[in-house]
Design a protein around this nucleic acid. Structure first.
Lengths: 328, 328
DNA sequence: ACCAGAAATGTTTGCGTAAACAGTCGGCGG
DNA sequence: CCGCCGACTGTTTACGCAAACATTTCTGGT
């Protein structure tokens, strides 16, 4: 900055004014300064600015396994929404969703240059195990934190219920469930909602088959389900597992949907390309991302107290060709 | 920091020493200081540190549509590799891969607190249109920048050749190509390599069908290909389009692989779950991410000049059940 | 007990920026 | 033609931290 000032024949303060486009600089001077900045390749030092201003223009985001569809779509939406508000996003991926790793990630990130923190799918962390720096605004996409931090989440319960009711409505006696890992909050919510929807309809509740979100685990589970002639309808906790399940059914010679109907969850892009195209509960990841950023920035900028806020983003059942009435 | 120093009854410098875990502080003192830090919720201010040190411990990453499989896997790998080296990653998503938007993103990011920049899939940007701040270390995952910036890329040509040769080896007379968008460098490389592999084998080169990477575009293209009885083997430029293509073939009553063999590219998780499981050219995104970080940090830390470096990461043809010899 | 030298701690300074305050200059009314 | 006002521009200072240098407090050996 000093060099620019010298070259333009002005003071450093004037350079600063030009850099920030203050209107109180005479145009002729500004032109000269800009030319000098150009020539010297000057760029304002953000660390110094952050030090001066006391904030960074950056939000942190913690995620686990961010190449997964739900994660990456949320990340994309968050980045876009944050950018639209003039913030950048710094990302940390945690090794596992275990409390210890989450805390380590928070510790690392809270020493970073961030004004606020977005935690997505910190599935197994609990408010107690999460040692957050005081006064750091936080939003979470996991409802376990309701009452501790503002949260945004898809309507897991509603989606699961819609899936079960759709299958029951088709005439199936009951609906099997291919659940997600037991330590995942969304997985548990989907499972509980599946159970209560069955109970409410007076249907029997079959044993849960559990996977770990991966397609491979869905494929394993599918082998078991395919052997059970009673299983005519399956609600899978996500689309990847549903894809593995469908493949296992194909391999077992069971037709989808003639022999077995399958419903997924998430609405990933490829769900429409499976054979048959998968009926699924579609989440609006874009909206989730936008809400997360909105809630966070309201705390950062306006110092709002949003503790008890819990935004539920609606989901939508998309009926495709993987569901049909059972064989008579 | 001053408050902590006062509370612990030491100087600010000693607090700094404890914060950085310098070994020259007596343990008894360190304990007192740590207690004070704890009580006051003190956290070192990174902006001030960055200002003092002259670097940020952060790398920037520019990507486009980062929810796509290849992108998100690369992002995840980069984040992990950077974390392992003690760096964090700040992300910016660009609206479109057009030169103008890329430049805007670079401009935005170069004013951020970053020590280096990773550009992935800046497909249509050219070295000229990209106004980078001078002296900012850069790596690129697009070979168009070879000679301008160090680059890392999968072996596009080798992968495409392997796909074509696999199909030809199965006995197909020729191989059709479902290409990616014309403004994408990887798409062009795959297409050119497909063409030269056919020519080298003395096979005729059918007209290219072009998609835009999405499964939907693959489905559209599939409708055309399904109507052509000459098309017994198709090499799709990515797995998403291959999935759409396979679905279109199913809908047209053409069997895969009995009537038409299909090979994809990327090796996304769901490629193994399609029906039939997709033969594809698998990229090692993890390795690409690690190489990107390695190349970048060598410039950042050691000030190495890596201009002409171009690391090619091998790909691997994974044979599954979507390919077979043509009907006699 | 005394001293040299090592260990521990304190003081000064500057990193690049922008707010607050202090000039300087030109033009206009009287 | 003087003085005052507003438009510009310059000077001083502090943001929080850590390197460099200065000073104090311990060691252990005699």
């Amino acid at each position: 900055m000093t060099d620019v000032a010298a070259l333009a024949g002005v003071s450093a303060q004037t350079v600063s004014r030009v850099a920030r486009e203050e209107p109180t600089v005479r145009e002729a001077t500004a032109v000269r300064v800009r030319a000098a900045m150009e020539e010297l390749g000057y760029t304002p030092n953000r660390a110094a600015r952050a030090l001066r201003y006391g904030h960074y223009g950056t939000v942190g985001m913690i995620a686990h396994r961010l190449a997964r569809t739900g994660e990456s779509r949320t990340v994309e939406a968050v980045v876009e929404a944050a950018q639209a508000e003039g913030y950048t996003v710094t990302l940390v991926d945690i090794a596992s969703p275990a409390p210890h790793d989450v805390s380590a990630a928070v510790a690392r990130l809270s020493h970073q240059d961030i004004d606020g923190l977005i935690i997505i799918r910190a599935e197994s962390a609990t408010p107690d195990t999460l040692a957050l720096p005081s006064h750091l605004p936080v939003v979470v996409s996991d409802s376990r934190f309701v009452g501790h931090h503002p949260a945004v989440g898809a309507d897991q319960a509603g989606g699961a219920r819609a899936a079960v009711e759709h299958l029951l409505g088709l005439g199936h006696r009951t609906v099997h469930h291919l659940a997600g890992p037991a330590d995942s909050t969304p997985a548990r919510q989907r499972e509980e909602s599946w159970r209560s929807a069955l109970t409410a309809a007076g249907a029997t509740v079959p044993a849960v088959v559990r996977g770990d979100w991966t397609a491979a685990s869905g494929h394993d589970a599918g082998a078991a389900l395919a052997a059970d002639p009673e299983a005519t309808a399956v609600f899978a906790a996500n689309d990847e597992m549903a894809a593995g399940l469908v493949r296992a059914l194909h391999e077992a010679g069971r037709s989808v949907p003639a022999d077995v109907s399958v419903v997924g969850f998430d609405g990933i892009e490829l769900s429409a390309q499976l054979w048959p195209p998968l009926t699924t509960v579609e989440q609006d990841f874009g909206e989730i991302g936008r809400q997360l950023v909105d809630l966070l920035l309201r705390q950062v900028r306006d110092d709002e107290d949003l503790q008890d806020t819990h935004t539920v983003v609606p989901v939508r059942l998309v009926e495709r060709q993987s569901t049909a009435p059972p064989r008579p």
